[in-house]
Amino acid sequence: MTTGQWLANPDGTRWFFDSGALSLDFGLGGVDVREQFASPADLVEWLAERFERVEKKASTGELRDAVLLREAIASAARAVALGGAPTRDDVDTINLFAAMPDVPPALAGGRRRAGAGRVRAAQALASVARDAVRVFTTHGRLDDAGEASARRRIRECEADDCGYVFLDESRADNRRWCSMQRCGNRAKVRAHRARALG
Rank of each mutant, 00 (worst) to 15 (best):
G117Y: 05
G117Q: 07
R118K: 14
R118H: 08
R118P: 08
V119I: 11
R120M: 08
R120Y: 01
R120K: 13
A122L: 10
A122T: 13
A122H: 08
Q123Y: 02
Q123N: 10
A124F: 01
L125V: 05
A126D: 05
A126K: 09
S127Q: 06
V128A: 04
V128S: 03
V128P: 00
A129Q: 06
A129S: 09
R130E: 00
R130F: 01
R130V: 00
D131L: 07
A132V: 03
A132H: 02
R134D: 13
R134M: 09
R134T: 13
F136L: 14
F136G: 05
T137Q: 10
T137P: 00
T138M: 10
G140L: 12
L142S: 04
D143T: 03
D143L: 05
D143S: 03
A145V: 08
A145P: 01
A145N: 11
A145L: 13
G146P: 05
E147A: 15
E147R: 15
E147G: 12
A148G: 15
S149I: 07
A150H: 12
A150T: 14
A150I: 12
A150G: 14
A150R: 14
R151I: 11
R152H: 15
R152I: 10
R152F: 06
R152S: 13
R153P: 03
R153E: 13
I154N: 07
R155L: 15
R155Y: 05
E156S: 10
E156T: 09
C157S: 07
C157D: 09
C157P: 02
E158Y: 02
A159Q: 12
A159V: 07
A159D: 14
